[in-house]
């Protein structure tokens, strides 16, 4: 009896990867899942930070999908290696700072390495031709196969019938007749297949699987690069872009202001890394300053922070400023009025 073939499936947590893996299981393939954490993934981060959401923390969809499928899941931290994909995508960016095609190539390449290192046979993805404008088109499918190095060991069960047979099909490891020929942006075929498999609940990511597709987030990241004069980031930078209001009153510094208690608590964790400001005389937000502000800049930032606290209508608000050495001092300032905060400061 031939030994059972093994596939590693890219599991994003969405419906397509759930179905692709399930189609393989139907054909008797042993499947394990792999999920990559880039730092930009749309997971429960903002949820985890915001106080009002603590009562109902969000589940991790990739883990949930793996549990529905009864498969093992390997979550891989690719934060460092992924930077090169974000900085210099060979195939360029999509609508925002999303390097989707390079991203897909990178992830399939990693999965292919996994196949080689762990004695698996092939890679499975939930890609569907025409589903995404940048990375899932008829002409980009062979690009992903080729440039990832996976070549014909990459199988897309949901649209395989629209593509040349992959090696798992040619060798008879899977039956091409029992694969699918989905194409286009419609979700109906996937939803029909989901109900056929008895999956009644699943995540429906809207724009994409990561923050790089989000216009506001991408604008904040572009601002970060412009202000530093180089495309660089650390994990803390990209986490902080998800939190609070970001305002840049001057080119050489920006202010991150918490919007509620949970965000304030989260920002507190960064007090040793950034100059920070907190209202003392009135309840108000915690703010971090990113950059190299002068004393006048700190005073301006304090007036801005005061504007978002309960003392915004008061003639004076007292705030505590802590510098990077941990020294603190107090400032009493007049909160900025709404008309003194130009629209252009908001990132």
């Amino acid at each position: 009896m031939p030994s059972q073939r093994k596939a590693i499936a890219l599991i994003s947590g969405g419906l397509d990867s759930l179905l692709a893996a399930r189609v393989m299981q139907e054909q008797g393939i042993y499947v394990e899942g792999i999920n990559f954490f880039t730092g930009f993934c749309v997971e429960g981060h903002t949820h985890a930070i915001r106080k009002q959401d603590h009562a109902k923390p969000k589940r991790n969809n990739a883990l949930w999908v793996a549990e529905q499928l009864g498969i093992r899941l390997h979550i891989i931290d690719i934060i460092e290696e992924y930077k090169e994909v974000v900085f210099n995508p060979r195939h360029g960016y999509g609508a925002n700072l999303n390097p989707c095609l390079d991203c897909k190539i990178f992830m399939v390449n990693k999965a292919h390495h996994w196949v080689r290192d762990h004695g698996f046979d092939f890679v499975v993805t939930g890609e569907v031709i025409g589903q995404r404008p940048m990375s899932q088109r008829k002409d980009t499918m062979p690009v992903v196969s080729r440039e990832s190095g996976a070549e014909d060991l990459l199988l897309r069960p949901l649209c395989a019938k629209n593509l040349p047979p992959s090696r798992p099909e040619r060798e008879g490891w899977v039956d091409r007749e029992r694969l699918y020929g989905f194409s286009g942006r419609s979700r109906k075929p996937q939803m029909a297949l989901a109900s056929q498999f008895g999956f009644l609940e699943y995540a429906q990511p809207a724009g994409g699987c990561c923050f790089l597709t989000d216009a506001r987030y991408a604008a904040k990241l572009a601002d970060l690069w412009a202000s530093r004069g180089t495309k660089q980031y650390e994990l803390d930078d990209i986490m902080l872009l998800k939190v609070g209001r970001h305002l840049r009153p001057r080119p050489h510094f920006k202010v991150i202001i918490s919007r509620e208690e949970g965000e304030g608590n989260f920002l507190k964790g960064y007090r040793n890394q950034y100059i920070n400001i907190e209202s003392i005389s009135h309840p108000g937000p915690l703010a971090l300053i990113d950059g190299e502000p002068s004393f006048d800049d700190i005073e301006l930032a304090s007036r801005l922070v005061a504007r978002y606290g309960k003392g915004r209508e008061s003639p004076r608000v007292e705030l505590e400023v802590r510098d990077l050495e941990g020294h603190s001092y107090r400032l009493a300032v007049k909160p900025l009025s709404p008309s003194e905060v130009p629209e252009g400061w908001y990132l």
């Binding site: 985890a48 923390p57 969000k58 589940r59 991790n60 883990l63 009864g70 498969i71 093992r72």
Partner: peptide, 17 residues
């Protein structure tokens, strides 16, 4: 400190034995 760990770590344990 992320409350999500309360169900993510158990879920990971369940699927990985």
């Amino acid at each position: 400190t992320d409350p999500g760990a309360l169900h993510d770590i158990p879920a990971w344990c369940r699927i990985n034995g």
